[in-house]
Design a protein around this nucleic acid. Structure first.
Lengths: 214, 214
DNA sequence: ATAAAAAAACCGAATGCTTGGTATGTTTTA
DNA sequence: TAAAACATACCAAGCATTCGGTTTTTTTAT
């Protein structure tokens, strides 16, 4: 994590994006006012509107920035995780899930939900542009699991029996749902138990072993 | 469905609650402006503020109204469903799930997401009062499944092995997540397939039968 | 039952605060 | 030395809410 000296403009832009991501995850799109945002990012309105045409433009930029950042963070966390036993691709799915869990846990210390999920609930039915982009984000998340799921199916000669893409999207659904519930119920344990259950169900789908958890 | 003649005041109040529920499900709390709400409910600001002290008071009333209405609707839909085969309690879980699906499907024709889910993402981390109440709502939803799940476990002598309460909350998570994803991706088929997958997983947990769907 | 009185329900213009956005001028960087 | 980056004051629109007055409903008195 070297602190490279960057041009002031880029730093300003990054500061805005970072604070926006934080506030959007915490309060959502509409309740995040540009005023408090500029205060949090320590920029004046002049600086802000020099970098972004407005709130919507900012939100779209934040989505891009977040998805890139998210990907890097996940990869980093995953690498720090204990090596997976055996060459089983299903273990890679679980690894990715564990990484996602870890990321959610870290964020939750500062409260807030999923940025994409928040924007999704706030804008999906009123802003076609955002709906489209956010839909792609969910696909992007699912894709990370899909590749491993597909391999895991192949390894077991289940390629015809399981639809890895549907399962991947199911995983994303469970993640989002679990974030929503555990957030509102203020219970990170609930989140982890639900992901554990998801893993058990996945293990069964791929291995046919009965695993009861809970 | 008899159309009982009601006092004008009660009708006004109901009209406000109904339109608010619709708008909250569609655009969320913050983006639903009182102006458009009063227009949709065909009331003047005077009438509105006679019935509700403000937006927050309204929101809390809407939650209560919605939960009651939701319960009635679910029961009604469930009764219209084909009778469940055998006396298996797990079938009752599936019945309730089917009813929930049906309700979501009907609503989705007019767009919008889950009212509770929407409010939850918008207010959980900023409004303690709402967080508390919404948390109870999720519990209430889970409870509908829990009673049947517990019985199903007993019927199979699995009462010690499965935690019916955790599973019930898992079901709620999946429902919320599936609503979010299918809403953003504009794919009701996705929603149904994900619920189908959930059912398969549940069937396995309770019966140990391998059922692959997808 | 009916008029009078009281209370509830409703109306709509007015208000003041917030907010996203702009315009113009100054500093910093290339 | 030109252009990018930033600062500050400003503004118009939108917003939740208020308030004095009017209509409708309910209660009370006769």
């Amino acid at each position: 994590m070297r602190a490279v000296k960057q041009s002031r403009a880029i730093e300003t832009r990054k500061r805005i994006l970072r604070e926006t991501a934080r506030l959007f995850a915490l309060k959502g799109f509409h309740e995040t006012k540009l005023g408090e945002l500029m205060q949090a990012a320590e920029v004046t309105s002049g600086a802000f509107f020099h970098h972004f045409r407005g709130k919507e433009d900012l939100a779209l930029a934040v989505i891009d920035h977040h998805m890139a950042e998210r990907c890097r963070t996940l990869d980093r966390i995953e690498k720090a995780l204990p090596a997976s036993v055996g060459g089983d691709s299903l273990e890679l799915v679980f690894r990715r899930l564990d990484a996602a869990c870890e990321m959610v846990s870290r964020r939750r210390n500062r409260k807030g939900g999923c940025l994409i999920g928040n924007l999704s609930t706030a804008l999906s039915d009123t802003h076609p542009v955002f709906r489209q982009r956010l839909s792609e984000c969910f696909d992007e998340m699912a894709e990370e699991f899909q590749v491993h799921l597909a391999k895991a199916a192949e390894e077991r000669d289940l390629a015809a029996a399981v639809n890895s893409w549907e399962i991947a999207r199911y995983i994303v659904s469970v993640l989002e749902g679990a974030i929503m519930l555990s957030r509102t119920q203020r219970d990170m344990g609930l989140f982890h138990r639900q992901i554990q259950r998801l893993k058990d169900d996945l293990r069964h789908t791929f291995q046919g072993e009965a695993v009861l958890s809970g």
